[in-house]
Simulated scan of single mutants.
Amino acid sequence: MKIILCEDVVSLGIEGDVIEVADGYARNFLIPKNLAVKVTKGSLKDLEFKRKAIERREAERIKEAEKYAAKFKDKKIKDVVQVNETGKLYGSVTVTDVAKLIYDQLGEDIDNRMIILGDQIKEVGNYEVTLRVHPEVEAKLTLEVSGEQVEVPEELKDEELKAEGETKEKAEEAKEAAKAKSKKEEKTDEAPEEKVEEKPEETQEKSKEEESSK
C-alpha cells in the first residue's frame, strides 16, 4: 500500500515522504496511530498544500539533530569485558550494550535502532560507533573495548581439549570416507564391460529355431 508519512518514522522516512509498505503494517499500525495516511488524490493534494510547512519543520528538525549530534563529537565510551587467553571475547558487544554504556557514561538515552555498528565486536580494541539521530544526520563516537582475562579451571580446559580432539578425529574420518568413496567410483568407471560369450549348445539351438521359423 502507498502511504504518506504524517511524522518521521525510524527506518521508514520523514514527514511528507510517499512510500510503499505492507498492507497489514499500514492498516494495523501506521494509519491507526496517525503516523501515515493512504495515498489518494485528496491526500496528495493536501500534501502539496502542506509541503512548504513540512519543509520548514524538517529544516528545524535537522538543525536540532545536528545540535544533538554535536554532543557526541570526540566522545569515547569504554567497556571492560571478559576475554580468554587469546584475547577473544566471550560473546560480543551488542547495540544493547552500547546503548547502556552511552546512558551510564554520557547520560544520553539512545534508542537501539539509532545505533549502527560495523563488524561484530569480538575482540579488544577501538571501534567507531555511528548514531543515526535523524535520517540525514549522523553522530560518531569511539567505543574502547578492553579485556579482563578470566582463569579457566583445569577441568574445563581438559574438556575443551577433548572436544577439540573429537572434532578433529571426526573430520579426519569424514575425509577418509570421502577418499574411499572417490576411489570406489573411479574403479567403477574404469571397469571394462564384461562380454558374455555364448555357449556352443546355445548357438546351435538358436540356429535350429531360426531355420524352423523360416
Rank of each mutant, 00 (worst) to 15 (best):
K38Q: 11
P135A: 01
I102Q: 04
F29E: 04
N84A: 04
T203G: 04
D23Y: 06
Q105N: 06
R113S: 13
V137C: 01
V80F: 05
K195T: 09
K122L: 01
D104S: 12
K184F: 11
I4L: 04
D23K: 06
K75I: 03
E58I: 12
S212P: 03
D119A: 11
S213Y: 15
E194R: 10
D79A: 15
K122G: 06
K208G: 08
T167A: 15
Y68P: 03
A36N: 08
A36E: 01
G165A: 15
I102R: 02
I110E: 01
S146V: 05
K140V: 00
K179C: 04
V21F: 06
A26K: 09
N28K: 00
A59E: 14
K52C: 06
L161M: 14
K63T: 10
L156Y: 11
Q149M: 15
A139C: 02
E154W: 05
E193L: 10
D104Q: 14
V80D: 09
I54A: 06
G91M: 03
E194D: 05
E173G: 10
K75Y: 07
G147D: 00
D79M: 15
E15C: 04
L5W: 01
F72A: 00
D17N: 11
Q149T: 12
E85C: 00
V150S: 06
E173Q: 14
E190G: 00
F49R: 15
D109Q: 09
V93E: 08
R61N: 11
A53V: 10
V98N: 08
K33P: 05
I54F: 08
L30M: 00
E64Q: 10
K73Y: 06
